[in-house]
Design a protein around this nucleic acid. Sequence first.
DNA 1: AACTGCGTAAACAGTA
DNA 2: GTACTGTTTACGCAGT
Length: 576
Amino acid sequence: MMTPQVITPQQMQQILQQQVLSPQQLQVLLQQQQALMLQQQQLQEFYKKQQEQLQLQLLQQQHAGKQPKEQQQVAPQQLAFQQQLLQMQQLQQQHLLSLQRQGLLSLPPGQPALPLQPLSQGMIPAELQQLWKEVTSAHPAEETTGSSHSSVDLTTATCVSSAPAKTSLIMNPHASTNGQLSVHTPKRESLPHEEHAHSHPLYGHGVCKWPGCEAVCEDFPSFLKHLNSEHALDDRSTAQCRVQMQVVQQLELQLAKDKERLQAMMTHLHVKSTEPKAAPQPLNLVSSVTLSKSAPEASPQSLPHTPTTPTAPLTPATQGPSVITTASMHTVGPIRRRYSDKYNVPISSDIAQNQEFYKNAEVRPPFTYASLIRQAILESPEKQLTLNEIYNWFTRMFAYFRRNAATWKNAVRHNLSLHKCFVRVENVKGAVWTVDEVEFQKRRPQKISGNPSLIKNMQSSHAYCTPLNAALQASMAENSIPLYTTASMGNPTLGGLASGMREELNGAVEHANSTESDSSPGRSPVQAVHPVHVKEEPLDPEEAEGPLSLVTTANHSPDFDQDRDYEDEAVNEDME
DNA sequence: AACTGCGTAAACAGTA
DNA sequence: GTACTGTTTACGCAGT
């Protein structure tokens, strides 16, 4: 019953019985990924071109003696492109994190357990870095031309350009020695012949690019040997492939959206239309060296997130062998992972963003029963549910809970009884359950203090995001450009991440400051309707939080408020 | 190593 | 008697 790490042999058996990827299918899978990488490559190239054009434009304007005001208009536009670039990067990073999250990227015992280690190698595509470099170096050059209104641009550009550096330093342990741009250079120089002679998507920089592997292979033959021995067609590899397919499909979706957005941006800016799709064909000939550089990468911004819309319609062309179905997804579901609230992804936003996914894929939601129950209750209009309604919410929202009812229902009841945060309220027609948010929040601090590396990342990314957004908003507001923050750019992941991180960080800070009454980051004050304590606690009198334990009136009496103050000074009206 | 949180299983009681 | 609801205990795993 107790599922050990990762996947039990039984589950592996299931995987194999249900769907085994044939070598042909694997081939197709690889090809799909290659194609995707190519697309991204082309897009990056396109961005690069646009950047150059924009800079040209900028220079021309300057030479033509245009007003500084117009310069300022271009700078935010550049930033918008940089945002796009960032999104592309984050998109890639999202992948591996999702892999990790689904438990298929568990590191072999021998490997150092760096939290985000699978993302370290080849994460920052050289082109992107080059682009960043160009962008960042171009700006100061412009500053020297003597624009009097360019201080905003400078700060913003600096802010943006510092992001990838930070990213690479944080995410890539190997990069910390030598600065952001020298990450790949030494390795590439050391192994040029191999990469020219043997282009393999799974091999680059002397490292196996299999998700979560990163085994160092001196040369290509040893890589092949490694590939055949470590990543043979076994249960694990099959499962990883399946997840990777999901990831690829997600990326394709996202890529399509981003392309569309980019096109709109180009149209809006009247930039000479250079269709990304019409990118020079030779791009297709890029070697695996280049391909591997566009391999998934991670940034602190990428909190683990399940695919946003995995069940969204997929392009028939990329559907390929439809080995990944919601039916097969449950093979990863039952794996007992202790993500539960681990990364402090706000449950409400996660569920909202991945609603379709959870509804259709039998993947265990990465939240504890307590969190889910709370969510169910808070989602209800009355902020109260009967047990049966809670059951229904579980089954309605999560395909995973449509099986093994006895087990999880028992768990739900167990949790309802066990946690003081769930308050049973006698009703006319029975009993309903409510949430005592104060009690619930009492449990949270321990969790957020949980993963230091993640928190560190969150903090750094937060530190980056905030000034970036602020600067962006400032400069754009100044130019009457519609708010173009990461959160509003139509990328649910990015936006969600940004807001989510802020939410969580606020929570963390609040908890760190022990008990400050809250500053409620933009959520409905659910707890304004503070649940009435009805849960008797005869066994634990000293725990009785005020003499209201048996009060059943919902009236907001002054007494109630008083007692609430006794109860806990940290009456966080809400924080997710 | 101890502690804690969580998930699972199960026993038991009360009630419709 | 049965099913449901609710409480409680026990155990194992994982993380700190």
